[in-house]
Amino acid sequence: MKKLLLGLSFSAAIATSFTHAAGRDSISIVGSSTVFPFSKVVAERFGKTTNFKSPTVESTGTGGGFKEFCKGLGVNHPDISNASRRIKQSELDMCKANGVADVIEVLIGYDGIVLANSVKAKQVKLSRKDIFLALAKKVPNPDGSKTLVDNPYKTWKDVNPSLPASKIEVLGPPTTSGTRDAFVELAMEGGCKKVDWIGALKDSDKGRFKEICHILREDGAFIEAGENDNLIVQKLDANPNALGIFGFSFLDQNADKVQASSIDGSDPTFDTIADGSYPVSRPLYFYVKKGHMEVIPGIKEYLAEFTSEKAWGDEGYLTDKGMIPLAKEKRNQIAKNVKDAVVLKSL
């Protein structure tokens, strides 16, 4: 019995030592898998060039990151959350409700989403409207009336006579992916708006507008190929007729296997994404708890490293990893805000 009591008190001691857990001396980062590679590089360089430990970076997805991030203040909760979209009002409210009142928002750059096929086939020139018509579950009636029909298109030529007569076959990420969200929002919605009467719905009936624009077809033309972008690249290599959806950095690294389709007349390159002429690109952010800056060592220095020219500048090491930098004035502005720890007031 004595031994049992001893054991119990020992395990209780372990448990309480963690409740105090003043021990965390490294930054904890969670969030988007798109920002993950960029966050990794900064974390590593930061750890190797300062006396602080390298931050721990988790790839939880944007939504999952905010969930952990907004759970509360204290060393058991992450300090920074990466995001491949802006924080939502509901997430900000959740943060506030849990005592995470002061959050610093940092816009870091852009990422392009590309549609690509194997280099063994010809490059495809698409418009956002083509993408919408080819991939939406319901499309406007081809006879011109303001009704919707189940997507009847089988080949790209059916969608637009100038496109090749190959079967519509697009590999893309599943609904849990931020890339999918951004693709739907930017490419599908962008093309959807081009149909006048649906575009008009955006103001009058937002729910219906989203229902039309955001739902991808489920009859086999769009194939959910998993979160792994490398896998999509491999599948494209094996099947020259298929197109795939993935992030720009994977295009950059696999230029020998896949080529990007141009969208609305613009090829995805560093420059077209940075100046906004390539339409399917999205901003990347991270969010910092101001309340942690005094508690966890190194947060200020990490932010300084991330917002330094050698990291996120036009020729910084983040661009080597495929991040598209912001304009110079914007960078200076944000770097200054970060330095002064300006808190996000409202969206």
Partner: peptide, 17 residues
């Protein structure tokens, strides 16, 4: 529980990331 993470430093004990 957060073990799917990018960690540069080698863990020295069961309480290191």
């Amino acid at each position: 529980i957060g073990m799917v993470a990018f960690i540069v430093e080698l863990p020295g004990s069961v309480a290191d990331p």
